[in-house]
Design a protein around this nucleic acid. Structure first.
Length: 862
RNA sequence: GCCGAGGUGGCGGAACCGGUAGACGCGAAGGUCUCAAAAACCUUUGCCCUUGCGGGCGUGAGGGUUCGAGUCCCUCCCUCGGCACCA
């Protein structure tokens, strides 16, 4: 019974009262029993946020609102929608923030989380607050550690040496983002490359399956492409180039005087693809996708770190080679990969034999060859690879042509590298005349017989390094024992609790902060009982987030990471929405973890997310938002003024959800006015004793067209056009100051509900319903008969230009429409004196007369 | 450099499968109400010519296919996002 006082729309009051009611009635949370028995389970997942000190930013709200709209829509269609949220609170950001402000993460994070919870409630998300996760909670990371142990036990975790960015002044390892143009972002000291022992997950074992499964999952196209490119399968061959000794003449004479081997190296083939260093038969193994160009390989390049560099370097070149290697290792990883544009390198003085033509080719080292990819060595084919071409030009090495395009021959000069994978072989001995594909097969087959080649597939993907030499993360549950090696912490001893270290900044000792906590660090070996020490690396935050969706529905179980029965019912995730910045790593790592758990028999599926959609980014007034520009949108005051419903509706209205949009400050008044008018329309109807207004057939038709459009568009995340359709409908229902009938407005309240849940609840109640609009499958049904157009407006063109429109009965045939069109004065005018050559009719849409000047009488030329 | 996305009114953005370009909203102009302002409501609003009827031009540029192109094809220019010299 609304009093006069609450006739006006007061979003803040409406929203507060419905928030309270949702909490009180547990509208959005599941009991364990409900999770066990839900009949139409729908797991609606969104990427959980990092709880920063600044609070929720618009990007978060945009993403969560878009996901929440979808969840509410599914719920109104009768699904049991589980929509959890959590906090991804470990990691470098907290650690740095804590170092800067002096507040310990164990105090900072709970405060941030509390603030996030408040803001997340305020925006009206349908979150199940009884099933949240916090990755820094020992009850959560206990299972993150358990996951590490499972991977370890199945041979998927191993230790390897790997390079890191090292700041010699801070005595600490830096992330790529902490390195600014080769220097430490904090102290400005030049960054070095260091090799340390780290833990890796062997994700590369799954490369082919990770690639293959992409064919079957319903993900955004851009994300699928990013994953494919990241895995980066390339089909090619490994070729072996026997080392011919060093060039002693290089100290004084010319390269041509090199000691040539008498005959092609013809040694027994061992089937081992690696470089072999047994006396006299050292060979360099290269990977190539273009074995057809082997006759054009005029030199070989090793990565500076390649293990054979020492062996092939001549005494005369040793000094230059060592200097070059030192320079490379002084460079940080970022610079090595990005900044160095023009290629550099040095000759080692060594030679090897091109197995295809027995020619002697020089061995160089250069930093454009990376140890981490392929075999760390390439055969350089300057005629057909742009990088090799640049390098050969710089160092004056020969650039022969071995592939000719149509119209070219063996002697056509090469101004740039010819890289296309088509053409005919030239200058390639008995393979001349073969096309590229045939030559690849023939050359690899022939070289393989002699032990110089194997067909090979490589992947760009490398193993997942999970070690972090930091404090704020879950300790890796391993104990190092001198006699037993790395021993897993027994599962019953989990969690390995992160000890409280007041001052965790790196100190002059260069020892990890965790190893300074003696009583934590020194433990007996679980295997032999001797004195041992704990692993001091913590794990990557990507590991925390690689399995969190498995935990959500099982947070009621303290004794297992995920309950089999619950997991069977709720997983895989039905819909996952998140940013494309995680298109590669997070999504790939979680796919890997699920695949591995599947193979261990712990999960019945091998892909975690049935559907994934990437959302776009929000910019403001045409410019990217950033703290330094001071143009960041602060949500709290906007919600205070307009209410969360208006804010949500506006964010979804800005542009297509998957593409993002431009937030214009003034624009919010559009959606705000729309909600006001919706409120007015319902309240006005309330005054007139039940349905004062009769249903207008034209409005009813529009209503059903709107239901159809909104249902279809919300289902495919085209929220902006769905909202436009609703606005259009309300405009039509109110045209000429009319008060819409109850049967016209009530379905609109339901259509709006996913976007503006609070006002929808309130109006639903005012329309006389008990309970929540989100309970009981209230999504309006669409009646095609009522939506059907009876009259079509057909555009009439003459030679493709619109000259008028006619109204014709829907489905009218050509003859009838032509008759109507000819009566249209403007059309008739344009047809006068013309001959109609052709008539094109698109039923209910368009009629086009194709005309020409009528043939002139008497055969005058024209 | 490579990969991905995209260029449509003053602005954000619509447009199914090649069929009336500019829905919806912002802004702007005029009006109603008001002592006034705000709010609300109504009308107009791609550009140019025209009193009007109407006509011409128009989706980054240039070509092409078609009765008809924002949409398809070719060449080029520009913007944004991501990155890994991947052999």
């Amino acid at each position: 019974m609304p009093a006069e006082a609450d006739k006006a729309y007061d979003p803040v009051a409406v929203e507060a009262s419905w928030r309270a009611r949702w909490d009180q009635d547990s509208t959005n949370s599941f009991t364990l029993e409900e999770l066990r028995t839900a009949e139409r389970p729908f797991f609606n997942l969104m990427m959980f946020p990092y709880p920063s000190a600044e609070g929720l930013h618009v990007g978060n709200i945009y993403a969560f609102t878009g996901a929440d709209v979808f969840g509410r829509f599914k719920r109104m269609q009768g699904h049991d929608v589980f929509e959890p949220i959590g906090f991804d609170a470990f990691g470098i950001h907290s650690e740095n923030f804590a170092l800067k402000t002096g507040v310990h993460p164990t105090e900072l994070i709970p405060a941030n989380v509390a603030n996030f919870r408040r803001q997340l409630r305020r925006i009206g998300g349908m979150f199940d607050w009884d099933h949240t996760v916090d990755t820094t909670d020992p009850e959560y990371y206990k299972w993150t550690q358990w996951l590490f142990l499972q991977l370890f036990k199945h041979g998927l975790a191993e230790q390897k040496e790997a390079p890191v960015n090292w700041c010699p002044s801070c005595m600490t390892v830096l992330a790529n983002e902490q390195v600014v143009v080769g220097a430490c972002e904090r102290c400005g000291t030049g960054v070095e490359q260091r090799f340390i022992r780290q833990w890796f997950f062997r994700i590369t074992q799954y490369a082919e399956r990770l690639l293959h499964n992409l064919k079957h999952i319903d993900w955004s196209d851009t994300t699928l492409k990013a994953q494919r490119n990241w895995i980066g399968r390339s089909d090619g061959a490994e070729l072996h180039f026997p080392v011919a000794g060093t060039d002693r003449a290089a100290d004084g004479g010319s390269a041509g005087e090199a000691s040539r081997p008498g005959s092609p190296v013809d040694e027994p083939h061992t089937g081992n693809a690696g470089d072999r260093t047994d006396a006299g038969s050292t060979r360099i193994t290269v990977f190539t996708t273009r074995p057809d160009t082997v006759f054009g390989a005029t030199y070989v390049v090793l990565a500076p770190e390649h293990p054979l560099v020492d062996a092939v370097t001549s005494d005369g070149c040793r000094e230059a080679v060592e200097a070059y290697r030192a320079r490379t290792s002084a460079m940080d990883l970022v610079a090595r990969k990005k900044i160095e544009k023009h290629k550099t390198g040095v000759f080692t003085g060594g030679y090897c034999v091109n197995p295809a033509n027995d020619e002697l080719v020089p061995i160089w080292i250069a930093d454009y060859v990376l140890m981490g990819y392929g075999t760390g060595a390439i055969m350089a084919v300057p005629g057909h690879d742009e990088r090799d071409f640049d390098f050969a030009t710089t160092y004056d090495l020969p650039i022969p042509r071995v592939i000719a395009a149509p119209g070219e021959d063996a002697d056509t000069p090469l101004a740039i590298a010819y890289e296309y994978p088509t053409g005919t072989l030239v200058n390639s001995g008995r393979y001349n005349g073969l096309d590229v594909d045939a030559a690849k097969r023939a050359i690899v087959a022939d070289l393989a017989v002699r032990g110089f080649a194997e067909a090979k597939v490589t992947y760009r993907l490398h193993d997942w390094c999970i070690s972090r030499q930091r404090y704020w993360g879950p300790p890796i549950p391993i104990i190092h024992c001198d006699s037993c090696g790395p021993v897993p912490v027994p599962e019953e001893d989990l969690p390995v609790v992160l000890p409280h270290v007041e001052d965790f900044r790196p100190d002059a000792t260069g020892v990890s902060p965790l190893s300074r906590v003696r009583e934590w660090y020194e433990v007996p070996c679980p295997s032999c009982g001797a004195g041992a020490t704990r692993e001091t690396d913590v794990s990557d935050t990507f590991l925390d987030s690689a399995w969190y969706f498995l935990r959500y529905p099982s947070t009621d179980f303290p004794d297992r990471p995920f309950d089999p029965e619950i997991t069977r019912r709720w997983l895989p995730v039905d819909c996952y929405i998140g940013g494309n910045e995680h298109a590669v790593l997070h999504l790939l790592y979680s796919r890997f973890v699920v695949m591995a758990l599947h193979d261990m028999g712990l999960l019945g599926f091998e892909e975690p997310y049935d559907q994934f959609r990437a959302h776009g980014l929000i910019i403001r007034e045409g410019a990217k938002m950033s703290k330094s520009k001071g143009n960041v949108i602060i949500p709290d005051p906007i919600i205070e003024r307009y209410g969360a419903d208006t804010f949500r509706l506006y964010l979804m209205f800005l542009g297509p959800f998957v593409e993002g949009g431009d937030y214009q400050d003034q624009g919010i008044s559009g959606p705000h006015g729309f909600l006001h008018r919706l409120w007015e329309s319902v309240v006005a109807g309330e005054r007139e004793a039940d349905g004062g207004n009769a249903v207008d057939p034209a409005v009813e038709q529009k209503l059903h067209q709107t239901i159809a459009r909104v249902t279809e568009q919300v289902g495919s995340l085209r929220y902006n056009t769905a909202i436009a359709a609703m606005m259009e409908f309300l405009n039509a229902a109110r045209a000429g100051g009319r008060t819409p009938a109850r049967a016209e407005i009530e379905p609109l309240v339901c259509l709006v509900a996913p976007f503006a849940p609070h006002i929808a609840e309130e109006l639903w109640r005012r329309l006389g319903h008990e309970g929540s609009v989100f309970d009981g499958a209230n999504w309006p049904a669409f009646d095609p008969a009522k939506a059907a157009e009876r009259v079509a407006r057909v555009a009439v063109q003459v030679n493709g230009r619109v000259r008028g429109t006619v109204s014709a009965p829907a489905g009218a045939d050509t003859e009838a429409v032509v008759a109507l069109a000819r009566c249209e004065p403007n059309v008739a005018r344009h047809l006068e004196g013309k001959e109609v050559r052709r008539t094109i009719h698109v039923p209910d849409r368009l009629l086009n007369f194709v005309v020409a000047e009528a043939a002139a009488v008497g055969g005058a030329s024209g």
